[in-house]
Design a binder for these strands. Structure first.
Length: 576
RNA sequence: CGGAGUGUAGCUCAGCCUGGUAGAGCACUGCGUUCGGGACGCAGGGGUCGCAUGUUCGAAUCAUGUCACUCCGACCA
């Protein structure tokens, strides 16, 4: 490609409402143009990147034995009624009526459509297993679209669905996809982690998210640097402390702590570390049978409650936070000074986090406004509570696999694989006849990759003050030729054109900047749009048969013999 | 959904308080000089100041309404 034949516009300044780096860079580099909130046009330059990502995904999916198809973006709402997801999906599902007043949706995902396809045509175990996928635009009417293409409303996604005669076979394909996804993200040149994920309300048995590691990510991931353990923070188990509880050394005492409601204030006031203070969170559980349970959840005050874990305690599943009125009714004290000492243990259940089990001589609210208790000890001042894992892990916690300490980092979810089991197949009656001629519901898996989000995520990982840095596998062009005086010097023009032809012949994705621009403009543009390799052709070097090479991340250029440049680039692109 | 803020040229923004012929930089067009790190000069094109209503002789500016966009919040006492 010659830039003079191409169409791209770069900006010196990013639009004011761009928040994250990738969004600013993509707008400045002219990859995308905003059309409406969360809706973007992919300009030719950005589309090249998107297509490269898409093709890597496609190649690997095909190699893994999946078959591509293309389902419609628009789906009849009837299918959503049949699966039972329609009402539950809420306003994220964009609905509209056609001219006959029939309800349609713009698909946010395609489980219903694919299951409908398969149930019509797959009747026998002989046709299974089958894995079908598509790369299609989706629409989810997000409450707050932001971060450019990373949380857009319209986005490009690869979604695959596999159908099996048995759970065993589903697990085999799940493993196959785990490996395939790892290959895909490796080829894309991303730093990523596969993390165990919460299976959520569907309650399947296996689910992994693939996260690109970046500070601007929206998810917290706990991982162990010395093993391959990684999990969503919501899911990572906080192990019970190994050290036994120290012996009680102080008498319990009521101290005046006027106005010190927050744990941090109490700690400062008493000159104690946060980990000597127990915070009590009042919750209420109202069961379907009408019974109401009031409970205090005890946590070390430097820890955070994990609601997913806490809701696994049967006695308080499901729970909500108690209102101020409820707290006063049960504890006769306003929130801020509540604690587990001296309450009516018949009406107030106490559940403590495992880490609280190792505490002695601790501080908690005194159930009297303006007072806290110090030197509190279990067994002596109050009964031993029941201990559960109800907190989020923090950096430094032991890894659940016993192989070191956890670290926490932010991630951008770019892939998700899921053992759906029979949820949709059952709802949509997707069944086959087995060897005995008996009808059985199919086992399903689903596997998603956020193709457009990957472009944003890759730029979050690869950028500097000059612009975008992408690996050659997905950069808009792998190599750029920047001539010094293309329109002035016959020698430079001839050498540039020759090199351009040679690189093209060698199968290298090359762009020649033949615009009649000043060098600074060309350098800046090629850096901004993220071309990984640059060759400068100038009369200066040409006299000695030399060209100038610099990678996007090198600080200085190196002179190379003109005759060797093609081989050098081939070598670099092969390695990368 | 609650709170706050912003809408003026393709982009970044000034002008608004104190009403009186709509501005700057970047980008774009032409000419000239320049040409190895986002050049300079001259001459141009481009805006119904988000939209509607009102106040006024006169509204980008004041008032009301409306729409759009952005941010913050929606639990850990």
């Amino acid at each position: 490609m010659r830039t003079s034949q191409f169409f791209f516009t770069t900006l010196k300044e990013a639009p004011a409402d761009a928040e994250v780096i990738s969004q600013k860079m993509m707008l400045r580099a002219g990859y995308i143009k905003r059309v409406a909130a969360g809706i973007y046009t992919w300009m030719p330059l950005g589309l090249r990147v998107l297509r490269k990502v898409e093709n890597i995904v496609r190649e690997e999916m095909n190699n893994a034995g999946a078959l591509e198809l293309l389902m419609p973006a628009v789906q009849p709402f009837e299918l959503w009624e049949e699966s039972g997801r329609g009402p539950g999906y809420g306003p994220e599902l964009l609905r509209f009526k056609d001219r006959h007043q029939r309800d349609f949706v713009i698909g946010p995902t395609h489980e219903e459509v694919i299951t409908d396809v398969v149930r019509r045509d797959v009747k026998s175990y002989r046709q299974l297993p089958i894995h079908l996928y598509q790369i299609q635009s989706k629409f989810r009417d997000e409450i707050r679209p932001r971060f450019g293409v990373m949380r857009g409303r319209e986005f490009l996604m690869k979604d695959g669905y596999s159908f099996h005669t048995s759970f065993e076979d589903l697990k085999r394909e799940y493993g196959n996809m785990y490996d395939t996804y790892s290959r895909i993200f490796t080829r894309l040149g991303l730093r990523f982690r596969a993390v165990a994920a919460d299976t959520g309300s569907i309650g399947g048995t296996g689910s992994h998210e693939f996260h690109v590691l970046a500070d601007s990510g929206e998810d917290d991931i706990a991982f162990c640097p010395s093993s391959d353990y990684a999990a969503n923070v919501e899911l990572a188990e906080a192990l019970a402390p190994a050290a036994p509880r120290p012996v009680a050394g102080k008498a319990m005492e009521k101290v005046h702590t006027p106005g010190k409601m927050a744990c941090a204030d109490v700690a400062k006031f008493l000159d104690l570390p946060l980990n000597k203070i127990v915070k009590s969170i009042a919750v209420v559980s109202e069961k379907e049978d009408g019974s109401k349970t009031f409970a205090l959840l005890l946590l070390r005050s430097d820890h955070d409650l994990n609601e997913i874990k806490a809701s696994k305690i049967d006695a308080i599943n499901p729970f909500r936070f108690a209102t101020e009125e409820e707290v006063i009714e049960r504890l006769n004290c306003k929130p801020g000074f509540i604690g587990p000492v001296g309450v009516d243990y018949d009406t107030v259940r106490i559940f403590a986090d495992r880490s609280v089990a190792a505490m002695s001589d601790f501080v908690c609210g005194a159930n009297e406004a303006g007072y806290h208790m110090t030197g509190v000890n279990f067994g002596r001042d109050l009964p031993e509570p029941v201990f559960f894992d109800i907190r989020n892990v923090v950096a430094g916690d032991p890894s659940p696999d016993g192989k070191g300490k956890l670290e926490i980092c932010r991630g951008i979810e770019v892939g998700h694989i899921f053992q759906l089991r029979t949820k949709y197949a059952e709802a949509l009656n997707c069944a086959f006849l087995d060897e005995q001629g008996k009808s059985q519901v199919m086992e399903m898996g689903c596997y998603g990759i956020g193709v457009s989000r990957i472009v944003g995520a890759a730029i979050e990982q690869g950028n500097d003050d000059k612009g975008i840095i992408l690996p050659p596998s997905i950069a808009p062009f792998a190599v750029c030729i920047v001539p010094m005086g293309y329109h002035k010097s016959e020698a430079v023009k001839a050498a540039s054109d020759q090199l351009y032809a040679d690189l093209k012949k060698a199968g290298i994705d090359v762009v020649l900047d033949d615009r009649n621009e000043r060098p600074g403009v060309m350098f800046a543009d090629m850096e901004l749009i993220g071309i990984p390799h640059r060759v400068v052709v100038g009369e200066r070097g040409l006299k000695d048969g030399q060209l100038e090479y610099k990678s996007r991340t090198d600080t200085d250029a190196t002179m190379v013999a003109a005759g060797e440049i093609v081989a050098i680039l081939q070598g670099k692109l092969c390695v990368a």
